[in-house]
Design a binder for these strands. Structure first.
Lengths: 202, 202
DNA sequence: GTTAGCATGTAAGGAGTTACATGATTTT
DNA sequence: AAAATCATGTAACTCCTTACATGCTAAC
């Protein structure tokens, strides 16, 4: 019961955004829902507990605005903006989460968040996540296509329409992944040749 | 609040599939994940409890295969395929669920299932769901586009890439909805003129 | 006769939402 | 001074997954 697994996706998103700049919860949520707006949305009911937990783990610290010292305690506003910022541990944790290149990085719920912070991810890890995502989608395509081929007879037109739309959407995402992977590889090749002349620092 | 909300999506999918033909759980799950394979997947851990609940509500009945009467009880297999089939109440419930034309029908998680069974849905309800879905997506587009316009300066290239991909995916879905809506309207118009000559039933 | 796939189930728990409750600040 | 929006927080609940546990049936 002691070791929490943590709200993987939300935690990563929060740490990632706070890495760019300190923020308070309300703003964080807006940025979050802009960043991932097309894929998912979070409510305060999950954000604040997540912040609280991250605080408990020492990943972030509160930065409450200074009250002037001469104002009596009783009159100080009991509620004010709380700006959170990343600690060193938080940065470490963020880096760790970004380095995980397993299913946890390429499933539907998490892929978007991981991609959004690719700038902070090593090129090698990026490639593995992109390829993992691609094969995940291709598995799905294969299994649905196989099933479609098997059930040729029963054709409800709406069901078919939906499945075709789904197939096309996923095919489209695979093409996009191919483009991105292509660019990544080209980039990696360039970096490698540069490394040869410059002698790469790990 | 006495009325259960029920596992809306899964319940609908189960009733819808059982309406087409009786089936046992294992097969149901496979059909489910073919039907919605591109959008979501369900595990047995949610399917069986759902079936149990539907059984309790009298929406479906078990159809255990007949054991030959002369086999002693002790030897009868205690475990066999359980074929479920829809009851009259189940059909009513299915029809009710398919008639709901609110957010519950056009949100991300539920739209696919509702669409899949559009054959059993009245034309008027279909249109409202399709339009509801479309405006839901357009809201999302607007809000993300507005946010993008506001934060022009800060351009992380991966974040931007992700947001653009998301926008394009959703734009594509809107175009698809437009096509479907167009076809629906044409169909409705045809049906109306036919109704004039034939005097429509119910 | 043992692996692989078919088939049914349950307990514990994760990740999030909804609805509520409250306070502070800005706009009209 | 009212209304809108910014801001923080919690309790109860929902829907689903994971991991486990079991048994049957066909194929090798």
């Amino acid at each position: 019961m002691s070791s929490r697994k943590g709200a993987a996706v939300l935690e990563l998103a929060v740490l990632g955004l706070l890495h760019e700049s300190p923020m308070h919860g309300y703003e964080l949520r807006k940025r979050l829902n802009t960043l991932l707006g097309m894929f998912r949305a979070f409510s305060y009911g999950s954000l604040y507990p997540c912040l609280k937990q991250a605080l408990g783990k020492g990943l972030i610290v509160e930065d409450r605005p200074e009250e002037p010292a001469n104002v009596p305690l009783a009159l100080q506003s009991r509620r004010s903006k709380i700006v959170y910022k990343l600690t060193a541990e938080g940065k470490e944790r963020l880096e760790y989460l970004l380095t995980e290149a397993g299913p946890a990085a390429w499933e539907d719920e998490s892929f978007g968040v991981h991609f959004a912070f690719f700038s902070h991810t090593r090129a090698e890890v990026r490639l593995r996540i992109l390829e993992g995502r691609r094969s995940r989608l291709e598995e799905r395509l294969d299994s649905v296509r196989a099933a479609l081929a098997r059930t040729r007879e029963r054709v409800d037109s709406y069901t078919l329409e939906l499945q075709n739309h789904g197939l096309e959407s996923v095919e489209r995402e695979v093409r996009w992944l191919n483009e991105v992977i292509g660019r990544e590889r080209a980039q990696a090749a360039t970096d490698n040749t540069q490394d040869k002349s410059k002698e790469g620092p790990r």
